[in-house]
Amino acid sequence: MGTYLKLFRAGFSRQANYRLAMVAGLATNVVFGFIRAAILFAALDSAGGSLGGYTKGSISAYVWLSQGLLGAIDLSGRAEIGERIRTGDVAIDFTRPVDLQTWHLSEDMGRAAYTFIPRGLPSVLIGALTFGLSMPTTVLPYVLGFISIAIGIAIAFYCRFAVNALGFWLLDTRGARTVYMVTSTFLAGLYVPVSLFPGWLQTVALATPFPSMLQVPINVISGKDTGTDALLLVLMQLCWLAVTCAAGQLLTRAGRHKLVVQGG
């Protein structure tokens, strides 16, 4: 357990070196946040002030929370493990007495934790100061919300890990990663809230782990879903956590087998 904690701290402090990149990320977050908030406000106006249960306050919360969490919840499809598999260095990693997946998860959680400081919180603050947003006044949504966010980060990691694990078989994962990034960002509810999707598209989205990465944590922490609804959503997240973790484990095991048998 102590090893994973160390890895978490390592991931955290490594991010501290990329200060300029964090500022850059925040700038992009804010610009896109402004534009998205303007779009959705206009949509609300067109719909007569309320849309899918959202008001200006709650939809602003959705926009700024999603922008802020982008730093932590990485939907891009890139993962360090990908490069190590491509070069074959992963063979060394397999000799270490640490589970490959959990090792990288710990580092990623550390990385994600760091991003709250320069990107996560400032985004929400800027949103609050410029567009205004409404957040819950009780404690429970925040407690459950942070748990939900943590699970969301982990699910996003496990999925990225699985996609990159395809590198054991594919010569170049770039195509797979692009497809992943495009579908994940859309279905996770980054552009438009999932609840505003047409019925059939919502069904498609809910059949994937993507909404559990972003939309669910946002709904929980912003109080869009409360009480038993919120708990059920977190339960759904936990199911996806197990599924994506298992997928990664299976792929890693198969990949390791391939390396050993075929020599990479």
Binding site: A43, A47, G175, T178, V182, Y191, V192, L196, F197, L201
Partner: peptide, 27 residues
């Protein structure tokens, strides 16, 4: 594969607009 990825990006960008117009008539 790159062409397909590019196509997918273009389509999802449009899908965002389309989903909004599934909910409203005018923007």
């Amino acid at each position: 594969l790159d062409l397909f990825g590019s196509l997918l990006i273009g389509v999802t960008e449009f899908a965002e607009v389309w989903v909004i117009f599934h909910n409203v008539e005018v923007l």
